[in-house]
């Protein structure tokens, strides 16, 4: 405790003398394989590896923080961190509030998972709150139930509260594969969103340009595709 107080005092004293710029990357930490907290309490996953590589290429010193998905955009605009990498799809609505780099994952299919393949997809569908999937279901004739975390959407289907869960197929695939037949894909895949990209404050044009250039370079030399295949399997959509 005492050490904390001293550290806090030092930090306050250092106000004004700005050290090397640290870029703070925010993620949800609950959306494997995009991002998750591993058993060593570190942020891990596709976006961790990609984000670290982008920062290396842009010569930035980056650190990761996790935050609730639901408040991830307000906390960005409030300046609590500088960029979002959290499996966030580019949408028109989000682009009004924040700005996006070019996509680092191409538009990927969303899919339904249910306890049986003939589940009623016009019944009750579980999604995570504030996602493109939630918006899609809300506009359809199905009944939408929203959950704060992706894990809760799966739990809702397992206990029969929802007929199916609708989410990124990349997120559902390992869960369906390891459910031992308890969960299966149902219905057709749906193509949603304009790809997954990094979100920044609209006023941070300089930082966005740096990350944009780094993503462009990784697309050009093929390292981004290699990384996508590593984390999402050989059938993943690549650039």
């Amino acid at each position: 405790m005492q050490k904390w107080i001293i550290a806090a005092a030092l930090a306050l004293a250092a106000t004004g003398a700005s050290a090397q710029q640290v870029v703070r990357l925010a993620t949800e930490g609950a959306y494997p394989p995009f991002n998750f907290i591993n058993d060593q309490k570190q942020v891990d996953g596709f976006e961790r590896e990609l984000g670290d590589e982008l920062c290396r290429r842009a010569a930035l010193s980056c650190e990761w923080i996790t935050t609730e998905w639901d408040s991830i955009i307000p906390n960005l605009t409030a300046g609590n961190y500088d960029a979002i990498m959290a499996g966030m799809s580019v949408t028109e609505e989000r682009s009004k509030v924040i700005s996006f780099t070019q996509a680092y994952v191409p538009p990927t299919p969303s899919a339904y998972a249910a306890t049986s393949a003939d589940a009623n997809l016009k019944g009750v569908i579980a999604t995570q709150v504030n996602t493109i999937q939630a918006a899609y279901i809300a506009a359809s004739e199905a009944t939408l139930v929203e959950f704060v975390t992706p894990d809760e959407t799966i739990a809702a289907v397992r206990r029969g509260e929802a007929d199916a869960v609708f989410a990124d197929k990349d997120y559902l695939a390992p869960i369906v594969a390891e459910s031992g037949g308890a969960l299966v894909f149902a219905g057709e895949d749906v193509q949603l969103g304009e790809g997954i990209a990094m979100g920044l404050r609209q006023s941070d044009t300089e930082l966005r340009a740096k990350f944009d250039a780094a993503i462009g370079a990784m697309k050009a030399d093929g390292t981004l595709n290699t990384m996508i295949l590593k984390w999402f399997g050989p059938e993943a959509t690549i650039f």
Partner: peptide, 16 residues
């Protein structure tokens, strides 16, 4: 929608 102060005025400093 942004609340932006100069980098030196961030509490606590992002580098902390």
């Amino acid at each position: 929608p942004d609340f932006i102060v100069c980098p030196a005025a961030k509490v606590p400093q992002p580098t902390a």
